[in-house]
Design a protein around this nucleic acid. Structure first.
Length: 198
DNA sequence: GTTAAGATTCCG
DNA sequence: GGAATCTTAACG
């Protein structure tokens, strides 16, 4: 017998698939986690769990292992340094949304917007457990333009959860931002996991 | 309308 | 070390 019913999410008729049940999202990070300064959020995202619901409704979870902070219009390495444009618009919004952009003609970059409104900041997700490199991360997750502006606090297809695990991490200069000049290039705003504790 | 460069990755 | 590949933003 083929199941047929009305999706609780969008009201459309669905055939041949079980209903989408709300996840027990007890650990989903809320707004206040993301509205803090990017230099607090970037290291705090280590060991948090990035959760994505695939188009086939399968839910996958990945622990975040490497991040980079981009901090405001004064930061020459931050895209917001060249002002508010259609591409950077979402970075000026309240923290918790996704800033996704295309680079080198091949790769999508996944960023989490942080800070308060009109303070453009974002965290680049550079690595997950068993997946090093921001371009590889988006390819693994299936992230594309459609995720631009998605809200991690309310989205049904992507969010971040608490893990209870504390990261031990190191910092270093951000990768691929030589164009920003020595002062900004050398800021130790890359955070990468060394090992986990409990 | 044209053009230069890029928060990368993969191959030789 | 260099190619692949195309969007974005700056400039005319």
């Amino acid at each position: 017998m083929i199941w047929q019913g009305r999706s609780s999410e969008n009201g459309t008729i669905m055939k041949g698939r079980p209903p989408i049940r709300p996840e027990p999202e007890t650990g989903r990070l809320e707004r206040s986690f993301f509205t803090r300064d990017v230099l607090e959020v970037a290291p705090d995202l280590l060991c948090k769990v990035l959760v994505i619901r695939q188009e086939d409704n399968v839910i996958r979870r990945f622990s975040i292992s490497e991040t980079e902070a981009y901090r405001g219009s004064g930061d020459r390495a931050c895209h917001a340094a060249r002002g508010r444009t259609p591409r950077t618009e979402v970075m000026y919004h309240e923290g918790g949304k996704l800033y996704v952009y295309f680079v080198y003609g091949m790769y999508w970059m996944l960023n989490v917007v942080t800070g308060i409104e009109n303070e453009p900041q974002a965290v680049l997700i550079r690595g997950l457990e068993n997946c090093q490199g921001p371009g590889r991360v988006t390819r693994l997750l299936g992230i594309d333009r459609s995720f631009y502006g998605e809200d991690l606090v309310s989205s049904h297809r992507i969010w971040i959860e608490e893990s209870g695990i504390k990261p031990l991490f190191r910092t270093g200069p951000r990768i691929g931002v030589d164009y920003a000049g020595d002062f900004w290039k050398n800021k130790p705003w890359r955070f990468y996991l060394i090992q986990t504790v409990r």
